Amino acid sequence: MTAQAPAAVSAGRELLEPALRATVDRLDRPMREIASYHFGWTDETGAPVPPALRSTGKALRPALVLLAARAADDDPRPALPGAVAVELVHAFSLLHDDIMDGDRTRRHRPAAWTVFGTPAAILCGDALLALSHEVLLETGTAGGHRAARALAGATARLITGQALDLEFERRARISLAECLRMAAGKTAALLACSCSLGPLLCEAPEPLPGALAAFGSDLGVAFQLTDDLLGIWGAPEVTGKPAGNDLRARKKSLPVTAALNAGTAESERLAEVLGRPGVPSEADVREAARLVEAAGGRAWTEAEAAARVASARAHLDGVDMPDRVRADLLELADYVTTRSR
């Protein structure tokens, strides 16, 4: 059963889409066509996709920007450039990730690089990244400049995390600490930034931006932990990718890393299965999933995700914000680890 997205996510998506579309329309035609396809607005031919048939993302990061802005001000609209900017950076990362990982599907349809070609998809990601910083700097405010610096730092950490992920593919073993450090960069950096951009654009003083960034950092690790569970046990109709996709790609995700470091007979057997040359058979994928669970990888990941959500909640204790906003942030934190798997 799929958890219902919180109302704050749906509201954020509704506020975001017109501004995001207007921003993407500023791109030159070839990049605009790829971006529109990636965001689910058009099909491979450039024809509009009816709203009821669109396969779009959760827009979690923009929702966090706007919700965090409400913690500082009743009106989230001054933070809308931040919501657009983080969604552009997220899209940049997904366009590049699909190429690096060889993932041929994204949101239940062919990934952009399989439709438009690898070079064009890379360039589109680059264009979206450049555009994200323009959007913030064009606010012309001190808060906008602080937000642009924060986003640049988060993007650098995201890239470092992705580089670590690629490095892990060449190594037989990695530690859990290394894997968590990778997740803190690849996923948590942008979620932490999303939570800080709202207060920054509203020019709220500390401790609010710092507390919300810490909330977002723990939430980001919990998000990655849950994504890694979905990468092994998620249903294709939910994830948009084949079941066991991460094992098929031999990704050293957090459940796999926990299982490999458990020191059990199942750990050694898992290392042997994942180390076999050639493309894993479907029997190997099923066996690897069983061994990850038997070695405790699934249980550790679920427990760590719950612990990270608890830590995220604790960062909000004692911080002054409206009760409704606090409740929405906590609901969103719970949603992150209750997505269907």
Rank of each mutant, 00 (worst) to 15 (best):
L329W: 06
S175A: 12
E293G: 07
R171W: 07
D227Y: 01
R248D: 04
R104M: 13
W41F: 15
D25P: 07
E331D: 12
D101S: 05
A204W: 12
T160R: 14
D43W: 02
L260Q: 07
T118E: 15
I232H: 00
L88A: 03
L274I: 08
A11H: 14
R13V: 09
V336R: 01
D227K: 02
S55P: 09
K251E: 01
P280H: 13
C202Q: 12
V65Q: 00
V115S: 04
R313Q: 09
A188C: 07
L332E: 02
A262C: 03
L64N: 04
R326W: 04
V24D: 01
A68W: 11
C202F: 10
I174Y: 09
L225W: 00
D101G: 05
D28A: 15
P209I: 05
K251M: 06
A130M: 11
R61S: 07
V84A: 03
A7I: 11
F215Y: 15
T139A: 08
L247D: 00
Y335Q: 00
E33V: 13
C179V: 11
W113M: 05
S196L: 08
K58R: 12
G263S: 08
E167R: 13
N261E: 15
D101R: 07
P199K: 11
T2G: 08
T239D: 02
I99F: 08
M321S: 01
L176S: 13
L229T: 03
A3N: 01
E169D: 15
R269E: 14
P236W: 04
V325I: 07
L270A: 09
A299S: 13
T226S: 11
A142Y: 10
A327I: 00
A183L: 14
R61K: 14
L94S: 00
A222M: 00
A243W: 12
A204N: 11
L200Y: 02
L291E: 08
G82T: 03
A8K: 10
P50C: 07
I174D: 08
G57K: 11
L166D: 06
E203M: 06
L64Q: 06
F116S: 08
L95K: 00
A327V: 01
D75A: 15
V84L: 02
E178R: 07
D101L: 05
A111F: 00
P199G: 03
S132Q: 05
A22V: 13
H96K: 01
E293K: 14
C179L: 09
M100V: 14
F92R: 06
L129M: 09
L27E: 06
T141M: 11
L225M: 04
R77D: 13
G143Q: 12
L95T: 04
F215I: 06
W233G: 02
C195E: 01
A85R: 04
A299H: 12
E33W: 06
Q162Y: 05
A120D: 08
G240S: 02
L95G: 03
T337R: 01
A91P: 07
R149T: 15
D75Y: 14
P51S: 05
H315C: 14
M321Y: 02
V309H: 03
D328P: 03
A243C: 13
D103E: 09
P50T: 07
E237Q: 10
D103C: 05
E272G: 10
